[in-house]
Amino acid sequence: MALTALICDDSLLARNQLKKSLPSVFDADIITASNGVEALSILRAREVGLVFLDLTMPELDGVGVLEAIKADAMDCLVIVVSADIQPEMQKRVMELGALAFVQKPATADKLADVMHKYGLI
């Protein structure tokens, strides 16, 4: 069974950009959420192997999602894809258990690099 990957971003452009930039060899069912609350309800309802997570979002931001994933010990990998590129923010999300940090805009090269590095493709 193919892996399910969740793209969580409040911007339609960012979701489409990311979806289109995923490596073609990455075999996964892609689903999307447009804020943190939506993402958590999906994560609680079904098995998701990998999350591409934006940070600055309305309702519940990416840091909030990471905290909930950690608190509930959910079994999914998280790649943060964000425009907030301050070193302190990167450090914070890594401490909260993110696998990697990708600076927006998420290009095919950047995604392929990081996914290859962590054996996802």
Binding site: S11, L12, L13, A14, A83
Partner: peptide, 14 residues
């Protein structure tokens, strides 16, 4: 508008 908002977000992050 959504497209412009996202471009602004990325630029503002920098």
């Amino acid at each position: 508008r959504d497209c412009l908002q996202e471009l602004v977000n990325v630029a503002m992050g920098q």
